[in-house]
């Protein structure tokens, strides 16, 4: 009887472990989707910045309509809620494929401040995108706002 009791305990423990593993794989699936979404968002930022940057550097001829479109998109991207992008358990300490440092989950005040700075810089870009000089003047602050987050919340990687 004592033997059976132990077997039962063992089975319960095994089932528990399996459930925990299932739950774990479920969350990590969500986390991977969230990381994908983060990267897609960053990719759109880079794409639109690239349009403006190429004009600012003189690699591409300035086109006010194209610049305005890219600048509007950047501003819209900065205004998007990212609330679901950052679930618990999706930091660089938790999983592969992301460089988001755990400190991003504990420094909410810093995140809000930097997000507001990005909003201000991209709004200024949207207001200035009508002229080449405007784009050239506005792109520095946008880069600084991007960098302010990457400085603190992104793991170095080669």
């Amino acid at each position: 009887m004592a033997y059976n009791h132990n077997v039962l305990l063992g089975l319960v423990a095994a089932a528990f472990t399996a459930t925990a593993a299932l739950a774990g794989s479920h969350t990590s699936g969500q986390a991977e989707k969230a990381v994908k979404a983060r990267k897609a968002h960053m990719g759109l930022n880079a794409f639109n910045l690239g349009i403006l940057g190429a004009m600012a550097k003189g690699e591409v001829e300035f086109n006010a309509d194209v610049a305005q479109g890219a600048a509007n998109d950047l501003a819209a991207l900065a205004m998007m809620s990212q609330a679901s992008y950052w679930p618990e358990g999706s930091s660089s300490d938790d999983m592969e494929g992301t460089r988001a440092l755990p400190v991003a989950w504990t420094d909410m005040a810093g995140i809000i401040e930097k997000a507001q700075a990005l909003g201000a810089a991209t709004t200024a870009m949207a207001a200035a995108a009508g002229t080449l000089e405007g784009v050239q003047a506005a792109i520095g602050p946008v880069g600084a706002a991007c960098g302010a987050c990457h400085k603190v919340y992104r793991k170095p990687d080669s």
């Binding site: 690239g50 880069g143 400085k151 992104r154 793991k155 170095p156």
Partner: peptide, 8 residues
Amino acid sequence: EFDTAGGH
């Protein structure tokens, strides 16, 4: 690629 510098 219009990523930015990060970290230090």
